[in-house]
């Protein structure tokens, strides 16, 4: 499988719930359908909550993976 390239990215390290999700949502609203957004999330509540909320909004989560420093990298495809 070829690696999907993100069209935009958001560094949400240190951003608390639910602001991290709200920022993700606002960023996605600016983007075109079918484009990809990469977000960087903290361990704990953020990685537990944000993917769930993004899923509920109808977007597709293409990939979630561990990043350096205990963070998570999530690739979202806008619905």
């Amino acid at each position: 499988m070829t690696e999907i390239k993100a069209d935009d990215s958001l560094d949400l390290r240190g951003v608390l719930c639910p602001i991290n999700f709200v920022k993700t949502k606002l960023k996605l609203e600016e983007m075109d359908a079918g484009s990809h957004l990469e977000v960087l999330l903290d361990d704990g509540d953020p990685i537990a909550n944000v993917p769930q909320s993004v899923k509920e909004e109808g977007h597709q989560i293409m990939k979630v993976g561990k990043a350096d420093g205990g963070h998570y990298r999530m690739l979202i495809k806008k619905a």
């Binding site: 361990d43 990685i47 537990a48 993917p51 979630v64 993976g65 998570y72």
Partner: peptide, 10 residues
């Protein structure tokens, strides 16, 4: 499953 590990953290 794509092995992302979110469930383990959650």
């Amino acid at each position: 499953c794509n092995g992302c590990g979110v469930c383990e953290v959650t």
